[in-house]
Design a protein around this nucleic acid. Sequence first.
RNA 1: GGCGGCGUAGCCAAGCGGUAAGGCGGUGGUCUGCAAAACCACUAUUGAUGGGUUCGACUCCCAUCGCCGCCUCCA
Length: 482
Amino acid sequence: MGLKIYNSLTKSKEKFTPVKTDVVRIYNCGPTVYDYFHIGNARNFITAETVRRYLAYKGYKVKFIQNVTDIEDKIINKAKETGVTPSDVAEKFTKAYFEDLEKLGIKPADISPKATEHIEDIIEFVQELIDKGYAYEVDGDVYFEVAKFKEYGKLSGQKIEDTIAGARVEADDRKKHPADFNLWKSSKPGETGWPSPWGMGRPGWHIECSVMSSKYLGETFDIHLGGNDLIFPHHENEIAQSEALTGKPLAKYWMHNGMLQMTGDKMSKSLGNIKNVRDLLEDYEPDVIRFYLLSSHYRGPLELTNDSLDEAKKALQRLWNCSDMTSRLGDSQSQVMEHKLNESEKMLSEEIDKAIDKFEESMDDDFNTSGAVGAIFELVAEANKFAGENPSPSDQGKAVLGKVNKTLNELCQILGINANKESSIAEDDSFVNDLLQLIVNIRQDARKNKNWDTADKIRDGLSELGVKLEDTRDGVVWKIDR
RNA sequence: GGCGGCGUAGCCAAGCGGUAAGGCGGUGGUCUGCAAAACCACUAUUGAUGGGUUCGACUCCCAUCGCCGCCUCCA
């Protein structure tokens, strides 16, 4: 079973074979840093990360680039509104971007190139397009001449004529064709700009991705990702620029994630119905947010509601409980010896392999994280069942449970989810642990004396402080949740 | 007008040409001093609707309806 990827370019699932054998090169369109990023952006980042992690799990060497657009009209507008410079805005939100990524538990890209640090490269790229006859300059602006690129529209299925029929393209007499787009924008006096052969100006939006992807990944890299709202015009234009210049495909596979919706509408900054990740993290743990985003397929739409997040949290709790139980009851140090297993141990052991198989099968099928999560939960159910039937497992039983624990951890890690709950109190905080142990011992004494009032008062009181006590058959277990 | 996606139980959500994973919720049990956790049973004869192909379709094709995205900045 090899990996299959749905390629937006061909609108079909294709077998994945890297362009080069030794490394998979991936580019994802990163944020324009004019505000905190929202949960919809996060879905894209997490989709990219899932691709990246799974490919690494499959044994590929992965090189992952995600750019930072730090000069753009929206940044300039924001600067005007708030009375600071565009670079102030960009700096502030670039910093916030990396902070929020980290809080969400998303690994930053191998390289996060910034547009403003590649002005020279961009100018060179634009000049070459002019030299090759694909672009023209008017009053300090440089446009890409869409009519010159015969394959224009191959990604989005848009025809140039239809685009004009939409009549929403800004009228500009200076352009040869309404669909022609900006490669270089002249700047007004006093505006941020860089010197260029065409006067002071700044890069058009689409050009930076073409420039930086080719610079760091080379011509024809493997996977280009982005939200499906970028298909047209952004990705279409990227293809036009790059392929006009090189005559080679920009990327082999194009992956586009679906939009996150709020009460039926797309979440977007222009609609004003956005939910910042920063704010969301006040109410939900990173794992919950990631788990929720992974619980459906990346290409479909996904509705964000409090209920869906709450539900994700409960589901995740079930996983955490099982992980807890298997680490408590299991022994991950000792080896499972198949021939020594009894009937039920053997069954559980087989369930581990089944879960791994189903997990990989799902992920191989265009990164079906929903199916992969299902596989994990099937293992959880089997482990719980086994533990219920074998409260005091044999050594081999412990070994199998330990293996379940390890498997749970490994599979979750591929999805970027912690199989174990991150506690706000360090696990090695021995003072807290000793204190809790003392309280629990006192409560156990009360229980021995059937002093239920005291015992319950302690349990309820701790619960309010975020410490949950469970009286299991083999002792008291506490979980910290605050 | 052009391009594309979606429509599966109360809710969320997968696989699959041979009669529906998983999660949440609900109901009834087991365990427990009581809880919690966990387990067991039940919870879609039905897959928006209407046709067609097929021995057989939720899965393929066509049409209809509904929802959504893109065509302007947007992950």
